[in-house]
Each structure stands twice: as structure tokens, then as C-alpha cells.
Nucleic acid binder design. Sequence first.
DNA 1: CATATATTTGCAACTGTGATGCAAATATAA
DNA 2: TTATATTTGCATCACAGTTGCAAATATATG
Lengths: 124, 124
Amino acid sequence: MSETPFRLSVLDIIQSSHSAVSVLDIEKNLGEHNRVTLYRTIKTFLEQGIIHAISIAGDELRYAMCEDNCGKDSHVHNHLHLQCLTCESVYCVDLPATSFVNNSHHQVDSFEVHARGTCEACLN
Amino acid sequence: MSETPFRLSVLDIIQSSHSAVSVLDIEKNLGEHNRVTLYRTIKTFLEQGIIHAISIAGDELRYAMCEDNCGKDSHVHNHLHLQCLTCESVYCVDLPATSFVNNSHHQVDSFEVHARGTCEACLN
DNA sequence: CATATATTTGCAACTGTGATGCAAATATAA
DNA sequence: TTATATTTGCATCACAGTTGCAAATATATG
Ligand SMILES: [Mn+2]
Ligand SMILES: [Mn+2]
Ligand SMILES: [Zn+2]
Ligand SMILES: [Zn+2]
């Protein structure tokens, strides 16, 4: 994977946002560009474990930086994706096992958990 | 909202599936039908709190029945959406506070939490 | 450095999902 | 039964994202 100027500017936009960004958010911060290249860049970043996608029903896909330990193969986050009911922003929040979804910083009203694993049927 | 034959058959398909269904899953079980009507039916069911959408990044949207306490206004689930790594099915699983993501039935390898609430910035 | 090879980019065209306006059909209310 | 409200089908559109291919750019090798 080459570190081209285009890729570096996309990466910079994602990195410098404090909340998860949509394709449109990225485009607003890019100069003139080719949309196809952007989609391909995002796909590459996802495959390389550089960014992860955050999918919230009825809302655009958003992207955020991965943890340092993410790579081409391992891609585990296990953290909270908090969408603010006021500003609609989506943040990644670390999940210390002790405080499950709430901590002193934010306030959680409702949540759902997306898990990957093996279902009852497939365990047998 | 009228209980038309078309709506009843869509509802029956969703209800009788033990895992969450995609639009394509529904279509495969419907006879000849109009695609627009199906999309409008799904939208109506979502608005009425009859079904809820499950959005998993890189995967089609799926739908599953809501809890009895869901309605036009309240739409809270707070349960686990488990996607099986083997069969790819997505199940809704109740979350007794004690066992957080694991229980004796399924095995969770990784998860993420989608939460709605108020972020640090907006709380101040 | 020069050249060969691999990767990325831009363009054009396409696909699939879902939305919209409107008229006909159907359901509910009076 | 008739009037009113809701739903459906059809045609058309909007938009996100994909694909094939050729030109441009980056990396590797001598
Ligand atoms: Mn995250
Ligand atoms: Mn569910
Ligand atoms: Zn906020
Ligand atoms: Zn399974």
C-alpha cells in the first residue's frame, strides 16, 4: 500500500476529527477530488485495519481510526459507539469493564450491542 | 394503519423467522409482489414500533420483531445482536444484567455497543 | 540514474437500494 | 351505500457504491 498524497490527506481528515466521520464529512474537507478514489481509499483503509466503520441504522456509515493493535488481520475494538442525541455526533469511547456503558463523562440513555461469535445452533 | 393482506404476509415472514431477516429474505418468501410496497411496509412497521432494524457494517440491513412494549413512540431494546461467525445469522438475545455479553447458549468473540445518549460536550 | 514492474488514479458506465408523484384500487367510517 | 382516508402499482428518479480499463504515478532493480 503506497502512501500517496491523496491517501495522506484522507487519513489526516479522519485522524483530526474528534468524532466519527461520514464520506460527506471527508468530502467537505477535501479539495477537488474523485469520488471513486475516495471510496477505494476508504476500502483500503478498512482492509488494512487503519480505520473501522460504524454502522447505525437509519444513519450514514461513519469511520473512525482503529486502535494501534489493529492491522490487516486483527480488528477488534470492543468499545462504545456513543451517538449523542443532541449533536448527533458519534464517538468511540473506551469501555473499562467496571463501568459498563456509563461513565462520568457521558450519559447513556439506550444502547444495543453488536456481537460476533457463534450461535447456539452452530455450537452444536 | 390498515391490516392489509400484503402487510400481514410480510409480518408473518418476519415473525416466523428465528433470526433477523433482510429485504431479500422477505422477498424470497413473498410471492409476486411490488418492491416499492415492501419498502413502504417496512418503513411503516419501523415507525409503528412493530419491527426494529439491525445495522451491521458491511452487511445488509436486517429486521426483527420488536418487544411487546415497543410502540409508535417508545422503541427501546437494549439487547444483544449476535451475528454468528459460522452461519452469518443475526439473532436478538436478551441481556440479563448479570451475564453481560456471554451466556450459556452462545459464545461471543467480539462485540461493540451502539449507544444513544448525551456526549461530554453536550452535557456542559 | 534509468528502466521495468506494480500500484493507484480518473473516467465512463453500471448496479442496487430506496424514495417520490400520481392515479387506481382498496379499506374504513358515516 | 356512499364518502373519505389509506394503500398499492407504476413510472421515474436520486444516490451510494462498484467495475473495467487505460493513463499516471510510485516502487523496485540493475
Ligand atoms: Mn469505534
Ligand atoms: Mn434486536
Ligand atoms: Zn453531543
Ligand atoms: Zn450460527
